[in-house]
Design a protein around this nucleic acid. Structure first.
Lengths: 195, 195
DNA sequence: GTCTATAATTCGATAGAC
DNA sequence: GTCTATCGAATTATAGAC
């Protein structure tokens, strides 16, 4: 292992620490209220040094979005271990219910980011937030398709809209119970669907 | 009519112009990206003068929230003209579908405001956004109760969550069609409910 | 009551030493 | 590659003339 590799490893390690810190802090405080100093502090990196890894604040937001997309990929890869597509969807919903406390405090990481980015005149980052949500939509559509149900993409839209709606309401009302009640309704709905 | 009344009228007129401008611009640009100068320009008032009517930016946000609450009150008052509670709910949903283009561009005014305000450490304004949503929740619960349906408040939560979810998805995907598809699903759901 | 000018602060970004 | 010091722009809020 050469020195140059060591240096590259450390460098990308810091880049990843900054990315992970950005994902956490942006979820907690939102884009506009988060300063580069906040992210740098959370990552244990001096403020000025951030610019060695990310040229602008927007690039850090982009990195956080990628982190959310990667997290979604891991999740669907795990769910692929289940044979029954319906069981995959129900496990997904159960995961949402399990995360009720965080959802009530901060909302869905991607959904709240999408809301905030859509307010910007600059129409570049908001499209990327939408792309992450579309990834979940596509995956869910594939599951409904595998079940042989009619209008699988419509069912996927209902599922993801349901998740976003219950996350927003739980967050706005600061009530995790919203996640439990609406989550259980989604579970019953998934069970009721027959080809 | 005395001079002092004339002055008061003009004053409150400006206050109302500022409130209406705040509601519009905050919906369009979000809280953090909107400057007092933006709101002042929209209202046709010089920047410095804003402080005569609102001591802080937060007070303007509060005023915008009140405007949304007032708009909701007008809406439910109009719907009270319909005899059948089910028809009231369906007319509400049809209104959401009619507003699909604005929803796709900006999302639900109250919902997006709630998302943004919940990111703030200062926990005063976010509660007020939640209160506006709770007003809609309560009204819908009353309609389901009048229909004699079981768990009216749970049904109300499903309806309002559905609205917030479809608005967020339409906004994130920039696709008004989401409002039409999910709105029609809600209409069919309302028709399917029997005591 | 109305408005201009500006103070005070914050934050994104950069320059440059090490 | 890493960090400190700081610039420059933007924004909230205030002081004070009219």
């Amino acid at each position: 292992m050469t020195d140059s590799v060591n240096r590259r490893d450390r460098a990308s390690q810091k880049r990843q620490r900054l990315t992970a810190a950005a994902a956490r802090v942006l979820h907690e405080q939102g884009v506009e209220r988060t300063t580069l100093a906040d992210i740098a502090r959370e990552a244990g990196v001096p403020v000025g040094n951030v610019y060695y890894y990310f040229k602008t604040k927007d690039e850090l937001v982009r990195a956080a979005l990628s982190a959310h997309a990667a997290h979604l990929d891991e999740l669907t890869a795990r769910l692929a271990g289940l044979d029954d597509p319906r069981e995959r969807l129900k496990t997904l919903v159960r995961g949402w219910i399990d995360g009720r406390d965080l959802a009530a405090r901060r909302g869905c990481p991607t959904g709240t980011l999408a809301v905030e980015l859509d307010k910007r005149a600059d129409g570049t980052l908001d499209a990327e937030a939408g792309a992450v949500l579309r990834g979940l939509l596509d995956w869910a559509g594939d599951q409904f398709r595998a079940l042989g149900l009619p209008d699988p993409d419509g069912l996927a839209l209902t599922l993801v809209s349901g998740y976003q709606g219950m996350s927003l309401m739980a967050n706005a009302l600061r009530d995790p119970d919203v996640m439990t009640r609406e989550g259980n309704r989604l579970l019953a709905w998934l069970d009721s669907l027959r080809a």
